[in-house]
Design a protein around this nucleic acid. Sequence first.
DNA 1: ATGGGTGCAAATAATTTGCATACAA
DNA 2: TTGTATGCAAATTATTTGCACCCAT
Lengths: 153, 153
Amino acid sequence: MAARVDEVARRVDQLSRGLREAGLRLTHQRLEIVRVIAADETHPDVETVYRAVRERVPTISLDTVYRTLATLAERGLILRVLFTPGPARYDANPARHHHFVCTHCGLIRDVENADLDAIRPTAEVARIGRCDAISVQFRGVCAPCQSREATTA
Amino acid sequence: MAARVDEVARRVDQLSRGLREAGLRLTHQRLEIVRVIAADETHPDVETVYRAVRERVPTISLDTVYRTLATLAERGLILRVLFTPGPARYDANPARHHHFVCTHCGLIRDVENADLDAIRPTAEVARIGRCDAISVQFRGVCAPCQSREATTA
DNA sequence: ATGGGTGCAAATAATTTGCATACAA
DNA sequence: TTGTATGCAAATTATTTGCACCCAT
């Protein structure tokens, strides 16, 4: 468990530093938002982050959360993912990785795999333009949803 | 060019048949929407399809386009893609394929590649759940946008 | 003929923006 | 102190829904 705690601390650090280095202010609100997003592995949407942050900063407004997450995403400090209909969700995992998306419940899980990381732009892609990031998306139904389906059906 | 025309005709056919086989009606409006989406390779959004269809069916309403595209996507006849912020876009290419997304102009181009098609769910993915589709996303800047950048800068 | 599909309008969801105030640097 | 960030509210964008009428099967 300590590893996870350390990892979260490292992310908080990295995001805070990223803001500072961009000449932006590390406000009370931003620090708490960073803490939430760094600790949440479920790829939360803005509303979810908002609710979590409000427990520590009850007066924070929803649009501050919108703006802060947008700011972090613009600097490439976090990733805005649009895998499912509905609100955009954010990923604070800075390492190169891929995703599993459950089309039933909306679960998004990071997938780490060296072979996938080794994928290079194809000749066709090189012709289209410059490639800055490559990621693989696995769509399907997560195990819990499969059990639920079986029971209902 | 004939090949392209044939391909579009085949897609129109396939989508029309798909609707029929699902027990749905092939209305005048639906047929025209299908014709537009089958011929458009730019992954258009609802608004774009609406404008194109209106040239042939001036009285069509925007929400009929919303509903028809949603219906086609539900049956898996077309693909709803959410790569960029803003409106959802649709892909009528039924073959397994991947995407290049330009982060500047929003261009989405299909990428075909047998090696990428050969990717299998990793052990980690198999543990998470059942995988129905795998696709690779290349993000970057398309050649035209690169030139534009160079000129402006 | 009849039930699904359409058009219209209103509702909802997601996100962005303008502006006065507050606070980090 | 000096602007940048915040909170509030209103505006915008994207999408969905309710309902009466129409038409493909």
